[in-house]
Design a binder for these strands. Structure first.
Length: 424
DNA sequence: TCTGGGGTCCTAGGACCC
DNA sequence: TCTGGGGTCCTAGGACCC
């Protein structure tokens, strides 16, 4: 039975989520800002047409916002995360063999009696997701994941595709590669793109003509794999296992510059709290914690603006108070009076499953059963009654450094007190 | 004044050992 | 005192993704 890889991608996902619950946004350009309302991270088609660029700082788009009556939203990850789950569950009802690739994308393997049957299933995914969740998606179908990505792009840009595009014939394959600049290939970023163009490799078609050894020397094995995929040899499979993260990072920019050690340790404690929550959620312990303080990188170009410190924990742990005390110690050591801090991050690495605690010869086991059950109760209470119901005192009360979210929509689908009111 | 927050994989090079 | 080669492990950094 023939089969194909599908890439299902939500159109302008964040903007579409906002529109599901606020119909007044439907015929207006919409942009979504990053955390801290810093820059544009998503745009509706109309906003793209108004010339709003991706990643542009918020203050630079203000004139456009005014001129074109653009709706501006802070990012609402509680809403987007929940909508994403609904979309993924819907896709799975059509094709169980799927991989959640990101918050708004999924790969799937679709088999059918023939090509036409496969395309019909692609259309069914699109129809069902739209009907069940209100989110429009595009579907690209091809022999490899990388080609499915490209097919998806043309499903989006081609008005007549109906949101579904399949690469079937040799000719279609060739035409698409000839029309695709290297910079648009999945796995080619800014740097590789520059190198390739310098050597006269401009389109995907040019790229697949190059000898393997040349590609490997320029773009390593990952690049070579990608080129094979473009040629039509599948090298990347559907990955089901949601594997464990290898590192956990928690960080935020501050809503205002921070000069004070107290504010800084408060923030670092908060990020440690969040990171350790993620750590326990995947049943891991961490062996190393890194705290980094970030100052304003734009005011002194060229000078160091990141200051980090890593501590080997001797024995892996997931205990909040241990982690917070180490993280605070790092912050105190890194802190220098007079610096203008913009951001901090806490990274946990050297993760091990909590079933495999290895006790170090020279120190006590940190993550005792007593601590473990304390942490379990903490996580349980917070998941039942809401985040930060119980939290460490060191994370502060006022949190005046917290990020800005001036244009936040309600968490319609995950909080009872913010559910949409149809008629009040 | 104002510039996101997560992640992954790969490689080079240093430390160390035999 | 001089010397080689091969292996492993770890880390930093660079590339990429959404």
């Amino acid at each position: 039975m023939p089969s194909a890889f599908a890439l299902i991608d939500c159109n302008n996902f964040y903007a579409s989520c906002e529109r599901v619950f606020d119909p007044s946004l439907r015929n207006r350009p919409v942009v979504i800002l990053s955390n801290n309302d810093g820059c544009v991270i998503a745009r509706s088609n109309e906003a793209k047409e108004c010339g709003v660029g991706m990643g542009v700082p918020e203050f630079k788009v203000r004139p456009d916002v005014k001129r074109h009556n653009i709706a501006v939203c802070s990012s609402n990850y509680a809403l987007y995360g929940d909508m994403s789950r609904r979309v993924m569950e819907t896709i799975q009802t059509v094709t169980p063999n799927m991989e959640v690739y990101s918050i708004d994308e999924a790969f799937a393997e679709i088999s059918g009696r023939d090509h036409q049957d496969i395309i019909e299933k692609g259309k069914e995914i699109r129809r069902r997701v739209l009907q069940w969740t209100g989110i429009p998606v595009s579907v690209g179908l091809a022999r490899t994941k990388t080609l499915a990505k490209l097919a998806n792009e043309s499903a989006k840009s081609d008005k007549y595709s109906g949101g579904v595009m399949a690469l079937r014939s040799h000719r279609e394959h060739q035409t698409l590669l000839k029309n695709t600049p290297v910079s648009e290939i999945w796995g080619v970023g800014r740097n590789y793109s520059k190198t390739l163009q310098k050597h006269g490799v401009v389109t995907a078609w040019n790229l697949i003509q190059q000898p393997d050894s040349w590609i490997r020397s320029k773009m390593k094995v990952t690049g070579l794999r990608m080129v094979w995929e473009l040629r039509g040899h599948s090298c990347l499979e559907i990955e089901h296992a949601v594997d464990q993260r290898k590192g956990i990072l928690s960080s935020r920019s501050f809503g205002r510059p921070v000069y004070d050690l107290n504010d800084l340790t408060e923030a670092v404690s908060t990020f440690t709290e969040r990171a350790s929550e993620k750590l326990r959620k995947q049943n891991s312990l961490t062996g190393m914690i890194t705290v980094t303080l970030v100052t304003d990188k734009y005011s002194n170009p060229g000078l160091p603006y990141k200051f980090g410190l890593s501590v080997d924990l001797q024995t892996p742990t997931a205990d909040l108070s241990t982690l917070i005390s180490v993280a605070r110690m790092c912050a105190v050591q890194l802190f220098e009076k007079g610096r203008k801090y913009r951001k901090a991050w806490v990274m946990l690495t050297g993760l091990v499953p909590d079933s495999e605690i290895q006790t170090s010869l020279f120190s006590e086991v940190d993550y005792s059963n007593r601590k473990k059950s304390l942490m379990e109760s903490l996580d349980h209470i917070n998941s039942k009654f809401g985040k930060r119901t119980l939290h460490s005192a060191s994370t502060g009360i006022d949190q005046t450094w917290q990020m800005k979210q001036q244009f936040l929509s309600p968490r319609y689908t995950t909080r009872w007190d913010e559910v949409l009111t149809v008629r009040a």
